[in-house]
């Protein structure tokens, strides 16, 4: 029993890290623009397809040892960059012209972007590459090769700890630390925090709010790209709808922690990952959406500002 609990704890943590990474993207954009970027989960999905394509191009299935890790690092960097650029492009092309429009417009546009991206994922899956199964079934999930050894690091213990668990947790923590330093120690971070509280006052400090918004989209997208590689390495699948569900869960995590609150997103992600793991184990995976969204609804009713408090600017 204890072993099961510990295993679920580990599963929850690793899942939670991925949720947290995606949630950070949602929360940062919301903090600055008070806008839910519905398409964020799909940026995550596209980065996953990108990563899979890279893996195929680089021939990583056959790589070993140091070469494998070095190239894997490259995939991480490139996929993050991909996610960052895609996220920024979407903002510049679709959201930016709607900055002053009523809330309905960017929200619906984001849904539109989500559709477009999902369709792109579908078509990407039709590419005649081996990793995509020849491209004959674009809607089917693609398997991401198991690049990391699956030996149990804990030997014969009933609890399985694989290299990929360590990687997920370690890499995620590293990225989050970098983000923390960015937000608290750099000028850009200072500008981001000021803009999130009062964009007009930030302008009066000489802060170029437009550039801050762009930087936020870049960082958020980069986090999503990074999360996609981590996710793909762990779950060994990419599929064109993986953005939709994970995105909603990640957004739930962001709200749970307090939307706009960066540590909140991490906490929310971890909590949701744990709840999901334990719910799957003890209630059954088929009830997963009901449990997770049920929690979201209850939370929003009783504590809309989330666990750590939201930064949402109150409308008078």
């Amino acid at each position: 029993m204890l072993d099961t609990l510990a295993q679920q704890l580990l599963l929850g943590l690793t899942n939670g890290m991925v949720f947290a990474l995606i949630a950070l993207g949602y929360t940062m954009v919301y903090g600055i623009l008070e806008f839910i970027n519905f398409a964020h989960g799909d940026v995550f999905m596209l980065s996953g397809f990108f990563a899979l394509t890279l893996v195929s191009v680089l021939g990583l299935q056959d790589a070993q040892g140091f070469s494998l890790f070095a190239q894997l690092g490259l995939v991480l960097v490139l996929a993050s960059a991909f996610g960052a650029v895609v996220n920024l492009l979407i903002d510049r092309l679709v959201y930016k012209p709607l900055r002053k429009a009523p809330k309905l417009a960017p929200l619906v546009s984001a849904i539109g972007v989500s559709f477009v991206l999902q369709n792109i994922g579908l078509i990407w899956g039709a590419m005649p590459l081996d990793v995509f199964g020849g491209g004959g079934q674009p809607a089917a999930p693609k398997s991401f090769p198991a690049l990391l050894p699956t030996t149990n690091l804990l030997g014969n213990s009933a609890i399985t700890l694989q290299l990929k668990d360590v990687l997920v947790i370690g890499a995620s923590l590293a990225v989050m630390t970098v983000l923390y330093l960015l937000v608290t120690r750099t000028k850009l971070g200072m500008a981001m925090r000021a803009t999130a509280q009062d964009p007009q006052a930030a302008r009066l400090m000489g802060i170029d709010v437009d550039r801050v918004v762009a930087a936020t989209f870049l960082v958020g997208g980069g986090l999503a790209g990074f999360a996609a590689v981590v996710y793909a390495l762990y779950i060994n699948t990419v599929y064109y709808q993986m953005g939709y569900q994970n995105g909603l869960y990640a957004f739930t995590a962001a709200v749970v922690g307090g939307i706009g609150n960066i540590p909140g997103a991490v906490l929310g992600g971890l909590l949701l990952g744990l709840v999901r793991a334990f719910s799957d184990q003890f209630i059954g995976a088929q009830w997963q959406p009901a449990v997770l969204f049920g929690i979201l609804i209850v939370l929003l009713v009783f504590r809309p500002s989330g666990l750590l408090g939201s930064t949402a600017r109150e409308k008078v």
Partner: peptide
């Protein structure tokens, strides 16, 4: 734009103070 005007040497202390509350 407003942020460039700050660079010119003009500072505006706005109506209602507008300090950054969480800093």
């Amino acid at each position: 734009p407003a942020h460039d005007i700050v660079h010119c040497g003009i500072a505006h202390c706005p109506e209602g103070r507008r300090v950054f509350p969480r800093q």
